[in-house]
Amino acid sequence: MIHETPVTLQDITTLSALASGIIPADDRDAGATGVHAGASIAARMRTSPYADVYLDGLKAASEMSKSNFGIDVDALDTTQLHQLVAILREQVPEFFRQLRADVCVYYLSDPGVWQRIGFPGPSTDDGGYSDFDQPQ
């Protein structure tokens, strides 16, 4: 169901935190945060076909964070966040899967990420790969 209510700051901060739990920052890059995955998901969440999945999932995440750690999702440290995501994967699987999928889309569509993981992007204009069958 589409929800006409506007995105809230809480949506953004919670989703940004959860997204960084899916793909964290490390010495290679800033992870999901670096591509603003959480904010992007939050901006489209309420009008997407998965609006109900997200709203129910965010409610569950907030409740589980408070009951397990006594604080909101966006206040969790890295270890606590990792534990919360494990709980969500177990108990709210549809939300976990959708969140993981959407974070993947944002992170792995970024040209900077492509460069770092060794994917050169489209090659049609260069004629594809004539060395496709050679040792790499």
Partner: peptide, 15 residues
Amino acid sequence: ESYGQDFKDFLYDYQ
């Protein structure tokens, strides 16, 4: 359904 550092390591193994 991996996530966190394990998942990121997998992504960086792409090549």
